[in-house]
């Protein structure tokens, strides 16, 4: 069973719909016991990182997430909460991934938010199994995780090269939305489920 962490982090039904399309049983839950027992855990999130971090802390779920040993996937703001800190607030995050999250500089060539389909490269590890570099995935964000030793995929927006995905031990995160990224996104989710 997959646990999708439920912590008032905006509209997350697209993640549920994606798991349904893949035929993967899941439960939307904030119950620490269920989360702990799940085979895989997904931390979704849209909206403001500081607010999302506050609701995670208020429910004590941040401590719970840190203690997990099964594969955990943070998506978008969910990933940002697993990083060291975010300039959106600013706010200290869970520090599971070695990146700081910074705001994109706005330029005429690189509009903010970075929204739409962009290609990812330098793909590393099982999350990107059978996916060629240059695959396109869907992004919607104004803040990005820096490059760091945990980076397992990169993307460029204007002059900024950033982490499109990160991994440290059992903690994975994608800045893009695999649940909205067509067949490439479905393959990435399938790879996560197969870990």
């Amino acid at each position: 069973m997959i646990a999708i962490i439920d912590y008032e982090a905006g509209n997350i039904c697209s993640v549920q719909n994606a798991l349904e399309r893949l035929g993967a049983p899941y439960q939307l839950t904030a119950d620490p016991e269920l989360i702990c027992r799940a085979d895989k855990v997904i931390l979704p999130g849209v909206g403001n990182a500081a607010q999302a971090m506050a609701s995670l802390r208020a429910s004590g779920l941040d401590t719970e997430i840190r203690s997990l040993r099964q594969p955990v996937l943070g998506i978008c703001v969910g990933l940002q909460l697993m990083c060291r800190s975010s300039e959106e607030g600013p706010v200290d995050c869970m520090g599971l991934l070695d990146a700081r999250v910074r705001k994109f500089p706005e330029t005429p060539e690189a509009k903010v938010p970075h929204m739409g389909w962009n290609s990812i490269g330098n793909l590393e590890g099982k999350l990107f199994k059978d996916l060629p570099g240059g695959s396109y995935v869907y992004f919607v964000h104004s803040y990005y995780p820096e490059l760091c030793p945990d980076t397992i995929a990169t993307c460029r927006h204007g002059d900024t090269l950033f982490s499109a995905a990160l991994r440290w031990e059992n903690f994975y995160g994608t800045q893009f939305h695999p649940e909205k990224s067509g067949s490439v996104g479905a393959a990435i989710l399938q790879n996560f489920l197969a870990l």
Binding site: C13, S181, G182, S183
Partner: peptide, 8 residues
Amino acid sequence: IARGIDIP
């Protein structure tokens, strides 16, 4: 639609 399609 949201259940059926995997693009925005």
